[in-house]
């Protein structure tokens, strides 16, 4: 049995399809519970509808980057397994690294070499990529409830400062991702600055011309347009 006979075989597609379907059903159930709760809390229908629309549009551009990750992984691992990993649990930033680490631990220099050694390395790679996340999943099961509960309690206990503390938590994430862009070359910096300028400009336009609908899509439009601007910056740098 060859590597790609299994990797692109119908069995793996069926299993992966079932796994993804399970997660999609869960998304639908979580959404149903949340929508019901939103009605109970008296959240305006328009707020809910704006949340749905803005989230859908916002997700489009980064999802194309994930789709590109699938295209990058498919020649080495087939389509089914990367499809599963990128739809469920995986991250486009880690998946290729995870596959390569598993491959090198098996004694192969690269994924392509593992693929030449028959189907057995595929089983080991799939187990390794799954097992590598076992600790993360167990921690999620145990600690999500505890951490959420603690955060709500601390916020309430801290009074007005609780509002500030929760508000600035995301700044730690922003700082970690934003600061390194300045060392990643002209194109990354130019794209970053373009995104800032576009966001400010679109916010100004939405306010000035009272375009409430635009307010919901500022981030999505800035994201897509500044990604496109990176092509221009790359051409100019050359």
């Amino acid at each position: 049995m060859e590597f790609f006979d299994v990797a692109n075989g119908s069995l793996l597609f069926v299993l992966v399809g079932a796994g993804i379907a399970y997660v999609m059903v869960q998304c639908a159930l979580f959404m149903r519970m949340s929508l019901k709760r939103a009605r109970e809390l008296g959240i305006d229908r328009k707020v809910i509808s704006d949340t749905i629309k803005s989230s859908a549009v916002f997700t489009l551009a980064p999802s194309i980057a994930v789709a590109l990750g699938l295209a990058a992984m498919a020649p080495s691992l087939g389509i089914a397994w990367p499809w599963f990993r990128l739809s469920v649990i995986g991250s486009v930033s880690y998946e290729l690294m995870a596959a390569n680490m598993a491959t090198s631990a098996l004694g192969f220099a690269k994924l392509a070499d593992a693929a030449k050694a028959g189907a057995e390395p595929l089983g080991a790679i799939m187990y390794a990529m799954t097992g590598g996340l076992a600790g993360a999943i167990i921690l999620d099961i145990i600690f999500i409830k505890k951490v959420d509960s603690l955060a709500v309690r601390l916020k309430a206990k801290a009074g007005d400062f609780g509002v500030v503390a929760i508000g600035v938590l995301f700044f730690a994430v922003l700082a970690v991702f934003v600061v390194p862009f300045f060392g990643q070359g002209v194109v990354a910096v130019a794209t970053f600055v373009t995104s800032i300028v576009l966001t400010l400009f679109l916010a100004f336009v939405a306010k000035k011309f009272r375009l409430a609908w635009l307010g919901n899509f500022i981030l999505a439009f800035s994201l897509i347009l500044s990604m496109c601007s990176s092509v221009l910056w790359t051409a100019m740098v050359k």
Partner: peptide
């Protein structure tokens, strides 16, 4: 705000929609 009842509900709706969109795009790509 996060860590509020409304925040919990809206972020769940947002992530559910986002997951469905990403999964659909990856499916189309596959």
């Amino acid at each position: 705000q996060p860590a509020s009842e409304e925040g919990e509900v809206l972020s769940t709706i947002s992530v559910a929609v986002s997951s469905i969109v990403t999964t659909s795009i990856i499916l189309i790509t596959a």
